[in-house]
Structure formats: structure tokens, C-alpha cells
């Protein structure tokens, strides 16, 4: 007897059509023990079952797991399926292969995750949890890699830099990923003074390698507004040596390039 036949017996249900998925929830406010959706998902409300029914399901649970191989939290399965699709399309594979053996293995893992995050970001989907996961696993360094990756620095700058001068790349890479050079990623909590300090510090480091610019990045309407105000209200002495140039400005994203005169 299949586990599904046993389950039907436990719940005393009669379903003729095959189901495509089985989902467990636990809702005290609903008395229905189960329902079958139009998408042929059997949804079981564990909170509505009797102790005997739960005990009987517990007995067949090992058989369910043995047959179906995994049980996932719904959102986790959605993410897992998305990752599988991403891997099949081999997005980001070229960039990852390029940096293999050129950057630390730990950074390569962070870059792999960041490339996936970037693919989600480009579809305008929520990346908050993905960013959190990268930060939890790889810390601030992972966060920096994620920001740099989303902003295109790995493909548009670092790859070209390595191809033209591996020596300069090796010297500069560490400063870039530890957030000491190249780009200021503004968030809504940063003060004007912090932005200025960040720009000056990064430019000092970049100059060592003959790089005469710093980019300011911002995402989100309030951050874009903050950066616009910062550039427009800049104190002359802070920006005497720069040409500020907006290279991307949309409602939700801004990139400003400050080029040394």
C-alpha cells in the first residue's frame, strides 16, 4: 500500500484524481482538516487533526520521506527551484570561471551567491533575505562582494583590470573587497559627513594604483534623494578636485562618478 493510500485512510478522505503536491500547515483558527486546491495540492491542517490521526501520520512519515526524498518549507523550495533554474541557465558561469584561482576560494563562494542575488535583483524581485544570508555566511566582506557584484565591478572592471595588469589586480583586489577603494555604497543611514569621509578614504587608496575616480552608488528612492542632495549641496572645498558626473539615474538607482581633475 502506498503512503498516499495510508494517508487517505487516516484522514478518511476520498480523492480520485492524483495530487501533484502535499502541503502541511497548522492553523488553529480553521477547523477543516484538509482541502484540495485547483492546482491539485492536498493541504493538511495539522492543528485540526486528532492526536490519533497525528500519531498515525507520524508512523507513515518515514515512508513518505523515503519515497519523496525531501520535505521543504514552502519558501525554501521556491528558492531551491529558482537556484536550480539559475544553474541550468549557467548565468554568471563565465565570471565565476574567470575568477577561479585568481581570488580566494571563500570569496569565490561569496561571488557565486552574489551572482545569483544579482540575477534576482535584475528581475526586480526582493533580495533582502538573500543579502542577509550572504552577510550571515560571509560577513562584511561577503556584503562588499555582493554590492560590488550587483554594481557590475567584477565583470566590468576587475576582469578588465586583471587582463591588462595581473600585478595591479593582485595589489588592488584586497583593498576593493575590504571596502577601502573604488566605490561608496550609500545606505539610508549614512550621514553627509560619513559619505565625505568614505569618498576621501577610498580615493586615497585608489590613487596608489593610478585610479582617479570613485563611484557613489545608491539604491532606493530615499537613498537616491540623499545622494542627489549631497552632490547638489556639496561644499566647494570638498569637491574642488572633482568633476561629479551622474552615469546612471533612475527613480530607484543612482551612480555618480567623481573623477579627479
Amino acid at each position: 500500500m502506498t503512503w498516499f493510500d495510508k494517508l487517505k485512510g487516516i484522514l478518511n478522505i476520498d480523492i480520485k484524481t492524483p495530487i501533484l503536491s502535499l502541503n502541511f500547515n497548522s492553523n488553529n483558527k480553521v477547523t477543516n482538516k484538509y482541502y484540495v486546491s485547483l492546482e491539485r495540492e492536498l493541504d493538511i491542517n495539522l492543528a485540526a487533526l486528532s492526536p490519533k490521526q497525528k500519531q498515525d501520520i507520524k508512523k507513515i512519515f518515514p515512508q513518505i520521506l523515503a519515497n519523496e526524498k525531501t520535505i521543504f518549507k514552502k519558501e525554501t523550495l521556491d528558492l531551491f527551484d529558482s537556484i536550480n533554474d539559475y544553474n541550468k541557465n549557467k548565468e554568471g558561469k563565465q565570471i565565476l570561471t574567470f575568477f577561479e584561482n585568481k581570488i580566494p576560494k571563500y570569496d569565490l563562494e561569496a561571488l557565486n551567491a552574489s551572482l545569483y542575488l544579482r540575477s534576482v535583483f535584475r528581475k526586480r524581485k526582493d533580495i533582502k533575505k538573500l543579502k542577509q544570508d550572504i552577510n550571515t555566511t560571509f560577513g562584511t566582506r561577503g556584503n562588499n562582494i555582493s554590492n560590488l557584484c550587483t554594481a557590475g565591478y567584477f565583470d566590468n572592471f576587475l576582469m578588465e583590470l586583471y587582463n591588462s595588469s595581473p600585478g595591479t589586480f593582485n595589489g588592488l583586489y584586497e583593498d576593493i573587497v575590504s571596502n577601502k577603494a573604488l566605490a561608496v555604497f550609500v545606505n539610508e543611514h549614512m550621514t553627509k559627513e560619513k559619505i565625505t569621509e568614505d569618498i576621501k578614504n577610498k580615493l586615497d587608496v585608489s590613487k596608489k594604483y593610478g585610479i582617479k575616480f570613485v563611484h557613489i552608488h545608491g539604491i532606493g528612492t530615499s537613498t537616491v534623494k540623499k545622494i542627489n542632495e549631497y552632490i547638489e549641496n556639496k561644499e566647494k572645498k570638498d569637491f574642488d578636485t572633482f568633476h561629479p558626473k551622474k552615469i546612471l539615474k533612475e527613480e530607484n538607482i543612482i551612480i555618480v562618478e567623481l573623477i579627479l581633475k
Binding site: N23, S26, K58, N67, I71, F72, K74
Partner: peptide, 22 residues
């Protein structure tokens, strides 16, 4: 029977652990 997806809602985490003897 073809393989089907088995999932649970966040609300059922505790109950699922009980089913797994955890």
C-alpha cells in the same frame, strides 16, 4: 506513483519536527 513535492508552512514547523521525532 510519481514523485510529488512535500512542503510545509512556517506555521507547521513545530508539528513537522514532532512527526520527525525531533
Amino acid at each position: 506513483m510519481i514523485n510529488i513535492n512535500i512542503t510545509f508552512e512556517d506555521s507547521a514547523k513545530g508539528e513537522i519536527l514532532t512527526l520527525l521525532d525531533k
